[in-house]
Design a protein around this nucleic acid. Structure first.
Lengths: 117, 117
DNA sequence: CCAAGATATAGATGAACGTCGATGTTTGCC
DNA sequence: GGCAAACATCGACGTTCATCTATATCTTGG
């Protein structure tokens, strides 16, 4: 990996624009925001996000999550990666376990974008 | 068409649950909400939605929308159908023209679902 | 240091998706 | 009635995606 991009955080990504219903998104804005929505637009990922966001302490270990689904461990891992790469989850390894934490700023930003003024 | 289903409106669809970060979505809830997000999770549809929602009068004719994209008319029509079937757009034919109107209640509901309490 | 447990990565497969050109349907006008 | 305009539907094509099994990586306890 040699890509040293101007990494723009999900907060910036979503703080880019005024609400949907106030003024039209530009093509660039839409292309920035859509991946966030796409990451959430899967029932499994939506539940994962909700399980993590509503978990005690605002974070959850992967081991806490796997049991809630009848899916293979790699599949859960894959979905968590998608959410993480979209900027909706923070990832922290502690010992054997990996903890994911919801980016509440990204969620708030998205909500503000969708909300009707 | 003989499908006389218990049509549940997008409002109900999205008013089903408390905020993401308050308590975990059930599988059924996630499967109801995800299609709404999926409908929005495309740059073209996001711009369409935003163009319509922010348009004067809260509605827009297809003819107003087509020019904003370098896409074929059937493609625009397809995306509008996706948004309509997800319950995010209302559709009304007036003469030669078809007008789409954003379901602000659905948008508000989604925003409330995503927003962090 | 090695075995066991937790998580991630790789590669494969079938289904879903975005786009197009061609064609169908509806409406108003001459 | 028939033509033109606005929009939708159809069928096809290449791409992306969700899922799986198998395997790799990392960490701790014995």
């Amino acid at each position: 990996m040699s890509k040293s991009l101007p990494v723009l955080s999900p907060v910036d990504t979503v703080a880019c624009c005024s609400p949907l219903a106030r003024e039209p998104l530009t093509r660039q804005q839409a292309e920035q925001v859509a991946p966030l929505l796409k990451a959430m637009a899967d029932p499994v990922r939506l539940r994962l996000l909700s399980l993590i966001a509503s978990h005690a302490g605002g974070e959850a270990c992967v081991c806490d999550l796997t049991d809630a689904f009848s899916l293979s461990q790699p599949t859960i891992s894959h979905h968590l990666k998608v959410l993480h790469e979209a900027g909706l989850l923070d990832r922290e390894k502690r010992g054997i376990w990996v903890y994911y934490r919801a980016r509440t700023d990204a969620l708030s930003g998205l909500a503000a974008l969708i909300a009707v003024p």
